[in-house]
Amino acid sequence: MKTTAPKKAATLHDVAREAGVSLITASRALSKPELVSEKTLERVKLAVDATGYLPNLLAGGLKSRKSQMIAGILPAVSVAQFLPTLQALTDTLAQAGYQLILGQSGYNQAREDALINTMISRRPDGLFMAGLVGSASARERLVQAGIPVVESWDYSDRPVDMLVGFSHLKVGGAIAGYFLSKGWKRVGMASADDHRARQRCEGFVATWGREVPTAFVPAPSGLALGRQALSQLLAQAPDLQAIYCSSDQMAQGVMIEAQARGLRVPQDLALCGFGNAEFSAHVEPALTTVSVDGRLIGELSARLILERCAGHTPQQPIVDIGFQILERASTAQSP
């Protein structure tokens, strides 16, 4: 078999040759276009298109000590709650000329540590974390790196650097308080096993005053695991009146399994989710859930990073955006 050697990447010399200008002129047209004539600039642009030239951002970054790259680490991009945050974060950073590079930890601490090491080695201008940095060693490395860091979708009064989030303990407590206000006595929880979901369960139990039947499934939770969780819960307590689910996706699975078993929602079993996923208002019955402004988290996180990149100290480095319970038909009182 014949092998084809990889095509050599175009260089600035190739662009200059194609445009019929000097190397200095080609460089100036790309870095400081206001210093060359419109005619020359157009010739260089056409040459860039013709040669497929891509500027060496790393070389430029070494000179300016700016990579124009922000690193982001998420447990999983498949988690619907994170999508508005990612969109807002990407849009806000792009408006300032920065690009977001993502990595997934898979809810695995060792993988998160490895990702942080890799990201730091690439010299990003900042780091966005969906969640808190999990290990003390990773926190120390980030402090030593001296780059802006925003932790999000969680809360701590001692973040690595900056934080935009909310308390999951308070979320759990608020849901338990809501269940108590409904007068339910026999309640349960269907939860993923990640740190934030477990915190909500802890907050629920603290407010409820005693342990309740709970089914834990691996994160990230979804529809199939929701069905599995309800099966586990009903095996523990067949007469449950209401269930809190750690995500709307899980709650949808619980709802499907309940209906498959002939249980009516909410007459026989009330359900509350978390995350206010797009579908939650449109299932039948519509799902009561906890709403968190994920887009605001993304916007504020980007602004804090950009402020630090500009050499300024944010006046409010820790922002608690709060949450709200959206009551819908899935927890309506029985007729």
Rank of each mutant, 00 (worst) to 15 (best):
G203N: 02
F204L: 00
F204K: 00
F204T: 07
F204Q: 06
A206C: 03
A206N: 15
G209A: 15
G209K: 12
V212D: 07
V212W: 12
V212P: 02
P213W: 11
T214H: 08
T214L: 10
F216H: 14
V217F: 00
P218F: 02
P218E: 10
A219T: 10
S221L: 07
S221W: 01
L223A: 05
L223S: 08
L225K: 13
G226S: 06
R227F: 00
A229E: 01
L230C: 03
L230Y: 01
S231W: 01
Q232E: 11
Q232S: 11
L233P: 06
L233M: 08
L233D: 06
A235I: 11
Q236V: 09
P238N: 15
D239Q: 15
D239H: 12
D239W: 11
L240V: 05
L240H: 09
A242M: 05
I243Q: 05
I243K: 04
Y244A: 11
C245L: 05
S246T: 10
S246D: 01
S247K: 07
S247V: 00
S247D: 10
D248M: 06
D248A: 04
Q249K: 11
M250F: 04
A251P: 02
A251E: 03
Q252D: 11
G253M: 06
V254E: 03
V254W: 07
M255L: 15
I256A: 12
I256L: 15
I256C: 10
Q259P: 00
R261I: 03
R261F: 04
R261P: 07
R261Y: 05
G262K: 03
L263C: 07
L263E: 09
R264A: 15
V265C: 03
P266D: 06
Q267G: 09
D268E: 10
D268L: 05
D268P: 01
L269Q: 05
A270H: 01
A270T: 03
A270W: 00
A270P: 00
